[in-house]
Design a protein around this nucleic acid. Structure first.
Lengths: 204, 204
DNA sequence: ATAAAAGTACACTGAACAGTTTACTTTTTC
DNA sequence: GAAAAAGTAAACTGTTCAGTGTACTTTTAT
C-alpha cells in the first residue's frame, strides 16, 4: 500500500488533467482518445477502464469546469451604501469572471459543442443560463427597499449584464478583440452603472 | 446549345444549394462531400471539378451568406423626427435581422467553426464585427445636430445593440430561449430606447 | 460531325479514430 | 506470498471520409 494515494487514483487524475487540456485546446471532436492517453502517459485501455466513452469523459470534465466557474455570484444588498458603489462592485466582480481565461476558454468549448451536438452540453448550458441570478436578487432587494424602481427585475438584470458582456465577453469569444485594459474596464463599468441608474433609480 | 443556361452552370448551382443546406444543418465537420454530391444529384468528381476542396466550398458559401445578411443596415438621420421614434425604428430593423432564421442559422454555423478552426471563418467574423456601423453613424449625426450628448459613439452604439441582443440573439444562439413574441419584442425595444435616451439625450 | 470540355459511376488510397482483444506485468489486498 | 485488481503495449476491427484515378458517356463549341 502506498503512503500517498493509490495508483488507480493517480492515473484517474492524470487522465482528467490531460483530457481537460486537450478538450480546452481542441474541442471534443478534434481530440482523440489516443492523444489523451499519450498526454496522460497512460495506456488507452486504462482510459477506458476509468471512463466508459469519450462522451462520458467530456461530460465529467465540463461539469467540473462549470461547477468551478459557476459559483453563482451572490451580491449582498446593503441599504446603507450608495447604489452606485454597490453596482460598481457587482460589475467588477462579473467582469473579472468574464475576462478570466478559465471562463472564456470554458465558454468557447461549450459553445462550440452546443452548436454541433446540443445533447453533449445540455446541463452545462443550463448552468450558464442561471448565471445572472445573483444580480437579479440584488435588484429585487433594492427595489423592495424603495431605492430602485424596477417592474421586471429579470429584464433589468439581463440589461445590466448585457452592457458589460458587450465589451468583455462576446468580442473575446469571437476573437476580434482582446481583453480590455484596466482603464477601459473602468469606463465600461462606469458607463453601465450610469445607464442602469439613469433608468432604474427610484424618483426618476 | 441550351436556350437557358449551360449545364455546367446548373450543376454548380445545384452543388452550392446542396452544400448550403448541408452546412447549415450539420456544420462543416459533420457534412461529407459524398453527401453534398448526393443531395445535389451530381457525381462527387463534379463537385471537385467545381471546388478545389471542402474548405473552399465552405468559404464560398459562408461568404455568400454573409454578403446577403450583412447589408450593413444604414439608418438615415432625420433632424425633424423625434429621436425616440427614430431609435425605435432602428431597433426594430436590427431586431428583425437578429431573429430571422437566416441570420441565426448562419451565425450558429460560423460561430461553431470560428471556435474550432478560426482560419476557416476569418473574413466572415470580420464582416460580423462591422455590423454595428450603421447605428454608430446615426449616433454621430444626432450628436453633431446637438440632440445627443455622446462622447464615444462606438461605445454608445455597442451598448444600444447589446440591450437588444441580450434578448433577441444570445439566448437563441444557445437554444435556451425561443424568439420573443411580438409584444415582448416591443417591450424590449421600448426599454432599450428609454435606457439609451435617459443617458445620452442632450440636456440631461 | 467532330474534338474538347464537362459529367458520371465507382472503385480505390490513405488517414484518422473510437473502442476491443490479447498476452503480459505491476500493484494492491488479505 | 498468492489471488485479485489495475495497468501496459500493441495489434486489430470497423467505420468514416477527403480526395484521386479510370474508363466511359453527354454536352458544347466550331
Amino acid at each position: 500500500m502506498n503512503a500517498e494515494k493509490k495508483l488507480t487514483e493517480l492515473k484517474r487524475e492524470d487522465i482528467l488533467e490531460a483530457a481537460l487540456q486537450e478538450f480546452l485546446d481542441n474541442g471534443f471532436r478534434a481530440t482523440s482518445m489516443d492523444r489523451i492517453a499519450a498526454t496522460a502517459q497512460v495506456s488507452k485501455r486504462t482510459v477506458y477502464n476509468h471512463f466508459q466513452s469519450k462522451e462520458v469523459l467530456f461530460q465529467v470534465i465540463t461539469q467540473k469546469l462549470c461547477d468551478r466557474i459557476m459559483q453563482v455570484s451572490e451580491h449582498a444588498y446593503h441599504s446603507d451604501i450608495p447604489l452606485q458603489t454597490q453596482l460598481h462592485a457587482i460589475a467588477e466582480q462579473e467582469m473579472a469572471l468574464l475576462i478570466s481565461d478559465e471562463f472564456l476558454n470554458t465558454l468557447k468549448m461549450i459553445t462550440a459543442e452546443t452548436l454541433t451536438s446540443p445533447e453533449l452540453t445540455k446541463t452545462n448550458v443550463d448552468d450558464f443560463q442561471e448565471s445572472g441570478i445573483g444580480v437579479v436578487k440584488w435588484i429585487k432587494e433594492a427595489t423592495k427597499d424603495g431605492r430602485l424602481s424596477v417592474t421586471d427585475p429579470v429584464r433589468a438584470g439581463k440589461q445590466f449584464l448585457a452592457l458589460i458582456e458587450a465589451f468583455a465577453l462576446w468580442p473575446q469569444l469571437y476573437g476580434y478583440s482582446t481583453v480590455p485594459k484596466k482603464k477601459e474596464q473602468q469606463e465600461i463599468i462606469n458607463s453601465s452603472v450610469e445607464m442602469f441608474l439613469n433608468t432604474y433609480a427610484a424618483g426618476h
